Simulated scan of single mutants.
Amino acid sequence: METWQFIGIALLVVALLASPLWKGLLTSRAQKAGENAGKAFAAKRLPTALDALATTLELRTDAGTATEVINAAVAAKPKKAAAAGPGQWYVTFADRDDIHVRLTGVPGGVRLAVVKTIEFQEFPQGGGDWAKFRERVVEAAQARGVATTEGASARLQRVPDPSGRETLSGAPASIWVASVG
């Protein structure tokens, strides 16, 4: 066997033995780059998502009439929302109770606002579903002659999920809630 053939075979053997190391190195670098890109993308979108969830709907009526209006909106698409108790409703994102909304009194009427929502991949979910639900409430309010206006509340804050659920990676899950007070 000639020297150049021996060198070629030796290089081939070294390349085959080193391939798992290279694959692991390249995979971990690609994974880290993907995670960094995902975090940067989410960070850019986070303020918009939080603003959407902080949008409130004020109804210029009493709590009883507002409850009737909101229940009419729920009845329009019962798979997308449900009553959760007096003055409280769920809006469905993926599961029935992903987005919690509550009715509170304000001067001149009542306010409907998100008080809790789920998180997926460190990002609050449900802004679009909340907007669609508000639209249905506005339509139901107009049908009853109730005036509505959009407003804003404080942004939701990220807190550990008290249920103890974990993310797909095994890390503790979080939820987004309205600030107390």
Rank of each mutant, 00 (worst) to 15 (best):
T92V: 00
T55Q: 12
P124E: 15
M1S: 11
A131D: 12
G24T: 05
S169F: 04
P86R: 01
A63S: 14
E135Y: 07
L112V: 10
G64N: 13
G87C: 00
S163L: 01
L53E: 04
F6W: 11
A154H: 10
K77W: 05
I7Y: 09
G151E: 06
G170V: 08
T104A: 11
E122R: 10
L168S: 07
S28Y: 04
W176H: 10
V110M: 10
S174T: 15
T3A: 11
R144E: 13
I9M: 09
A37K: 15
K39C: 02
Q125H: 07
I99L: 04
Q121I: 06
A83W: 03
S163R: 01
R158T: 03
K77Q: 08
G34P: 11
T61A: 10
A152P: 00
S163C: 01
R134P: 00
V114K: 14
M1Y: 06
K32A: 15
R111P: 10
K23A: 15
A178L: 12
Q31A: 13
A83H: 01
G34A: 09
W22H: 03
Y90I: 00
V13R: 03
T48E: 12
G181V: 15
A131P: 09
T92Q: 04
A54R: 01
L46T: 07
A131W: 01
L50P: 03
L26F: 06
L12D: 04
K23G: 07
A84W: 00
A40E: 14
D97P: 02
W130L: 06
Q121E: 08
D129W: 05
E119Y: 04
A81F: 04
A18W: 00
T67I: 07
D95R: 10
A54Y: 03
R136D: 13
G170M: 07
I99A: 05
K132S: 11
G108M: 03
K77H: 05
V177R: 15
I70W: 05
P47S: 14
F133R: 00
E122Q: 08
I7D: 13
A66R: 07
F6T: 15
T56I: 06
S19R: 09
V14S: 02
E35L: 14
V137K: 01
S174V: 14
D129P: 02
P124R: 14
R158K: 08
W176C: 09
A147E: 14
P78N: 02
P107G: 14
L53A: 11
R96M: 01
M1P: 13
G38Q: 14
L21K: 07
A72G: 15
D98A: 06
G109P: 07
A18V: 04
R165L: 05
W22T: 01
P160M: 05
K79L: 05
V146H: 10
A84L: 00
D95C: 00
L57S: 09
G128A: 10
Y90K: 02
A75L: 10
G38Y: 12
G34H: 08
T104M: 05
Q142A: 14
A154L: 10
E135Q: 15
A72R: 13
I7Q: 09
V180G: 11
G105K: 08
L17N: 03
Q125A: 14
T56P: 00
A141N: 03
G170F: 02
V146L: 06
L25Q: 11
E166T: 10
L59H: 03
K23H: 09
F120V: 05
Q121L: 07
A143Q: 15
